[in-house]
């Protein structure tokens, strides 16, 4: 187990360094001069020189990289080309909106997946099972941006039940926060819910076939109790890990949903950074996303190894 953990930590560190190099390269792979691109033709020569200097673009590449990554470790991701504000500050402002959305979306996903997957597994090859399979196929295939627009059309336009977009802070107005959150969370959660439904189904099916479940049934335990005590408890442990991976995706992958619902999160900011050629902001947000994604995946793997000792052998055997 310790060997596996060390190995996994080492791998993540190597990947992280590689990721930082790739992110660093963004600014340098842009054809032409990134500062010139960002400022456009209106800027004065003095402003141009000042920004170049502030971004450290006249230093040798290695020095630039080491400076950049060194500062990143201390939480300094540079200064936005567009606003002149620290990138970290701009990112932190956006975190609550993105975290709210990702957390709500994973709740939606679990609310879909656990009941649907369990019922499908309890009645394999029944119409319910067929429905679960078909709807998870559909949920995986539906474009989230289209679904969002259709929800807005129906629930914001025609019925007027929910606002068509925007974000309200949790602390300033909890009811408004929840009200604004419903449609984006459903839109972002459906795909994850579809993936998790399949997972819950096969996991419950596997648990149903275990000896201890048969024994519990044979000794006359009530069906409901067998399901709760023996089946779901075992089947849902691995769900923690798959759910964790989905959460990582949601934290970093809700760009499009944020655009559709004018949700002021990190994804929306990253896209705005691309549009305004604000490379430090883009680098900062991409690096942050990749780090979150790596960390959550690492945690999930370690958690999984802890929950299921067989994994460490599989991982170490290679």
């Amino acid at each position: 187990m310790t060997g596996y953990v060390l190995r996994r930590l080492w791998q993540s560190a190597v990947v992280l360094i590689g990721v930082s190099i790739l992110v660093f390269a963004i600014m340098h792979l842009v054809p032409g001069d990134p500062v010139r691109q960002a400022l456009g033709t209106r800027a004065t020569e003095a402003a141009y020189q000042a920004m170049r200097e502030r971004a450290g673009l006249d230093e040798p590449l290695l020095t630039q990289y080491l400076d950049w990554i060194g500062s990143a470790f201390t939480g300094d991701l540079g200064v936005s080309f567009r606003t002149g504000r620290p990138v970290m500050e701009m990112i932190l402002e956006r975190v609550p909106a993105t975290v709210s959305l990702a957390a709500a979306a994973i709740v939606v996903a679990l609310l879909i997946a656990i009941p649907l997957g369990t019922i499908a597994a309890l009645k394999p090859r029944s119409p319910v099972d067929w429905f679960a399979t078909a709807s998870s196929q559909a949920g995986l295939s539906i474009p989230d941006f289209w679904m969002g627009i259709m929800l807005i059309l129906l629930f914001a336009g025609t019925l007027g039940w929910f606002p068509s977009g925007g974000y309200v802070g949790l602390t300033s107005d909890p009811v408004g926060w929840a009200h604004h959150l419903v449609m984006p969370a459903v839109t972002a959660g459906v795909a994850s819910g579809s993936i998790l439904t399949r997972f819950v189904r096969s996991s419950v099916l596997e648990a149903l076939g275990q000896d201890h479940v048969r024994t519990a049934r044979a000794k006359g335990m009530r069906r409901r109790d067998v399901l709760g005590w023996h089946v779901l408890r075992n089947a849902l442990i691995p769900l923690v890990t798959v759910g964790g991976v989905q959460l990582a995706y949601l934290l970093s992958g809700v760009v499009i949903v944020e655009i559709v619902f004018a949700w002021p999160g990190l994804g929306q900011m990253a896209l705005q950074a691309v549009e305004s050629r604000d490379y430090p902001l883009l680098q900062g947000s991409v690096l942050l996303f990749a780090v979150i994604f790596l960390l959550v995946n690492l945690l999930v793997d370690l958690l999984y190894a802890r929950l299921d000792p067989r994994i460490s052998y599989v991982g170490a055997a290679k």
């Binding site: 790739l22 990253a270 490379y279 991409v286």
Partner: peptide, 14 residues
């Protein structure tokens, strides 16, 4: 390590 959509966007930024 990069979320798919974000990586595509970053590549298109370049």
């Amino acid at each position: 390590a990069f979320p798919a959509m974000l990586m595509a966007i970053a590549i298109l930024a370049i």
